[in-house]
Amino acid sequence: MSFRTAPLAVVHDVDKSTLLTPELRAEIDRHVGKYPPEWKQSAVMPALTLVQEHNGGWLTQDLMDQVAAYLDMPEVAVYEVATFYAMYDLEPVGRHKICVCNSISCMLGGAEALLEHVEARHGVAPGETSKDGKFTLKEFECLGACRHAPVVMVDQEYHECVTRDGIDKIISKLD
């Protein structure tokens, strides 16, 4: 919680054209344009999401520092955001992320059995990455698609009413 009405802007001593990539900067600029000019930091969440996607699904400290410099934010303010929200990963992950919803409707719909199945069949427990680096398995809190329980989010796509066979097929189709 903050009582400030202005952002704690910190201009870094760096040439912004050396940060990230031109494509990422253009994408981030599109988000920055939505907010008042002095509130560039409003774009920090979409910026981190874009940078993470570009980096194979996880964020390094160097990348977070570059986002901070690009948005005129103190580094620690970026770390706070990156560690607070569940969609950011700060450790290396597999090529794909499989997120199984574990909240009440999905639990009643058999999400637990699904997780046990993946562990038994594929040897990957929640929080782990498969040995071939294909996927990281995550338990996720409510994905907001409860009428299709159990729901599994694979990268950017929701899969609905997923059965054990269904998750096997999903995994086999991933590259």
């Binding site: 919680m1 903050s2 952002p7 409003s42 774009a43 920090v44 969440m45 955001v81």
Partner: peptide, 17 residues
């Protein structure tokens, strides 16, 4: 709603008093 506003301001989503 106030955590949402904090988040819109690019911060951790911690509710305001």
């Amino acid at each position: 709603e106030t955590a949402l506003l904090e988040s819109l301001e690019g911060k951790k989503g911690q509710p305001r008093f």
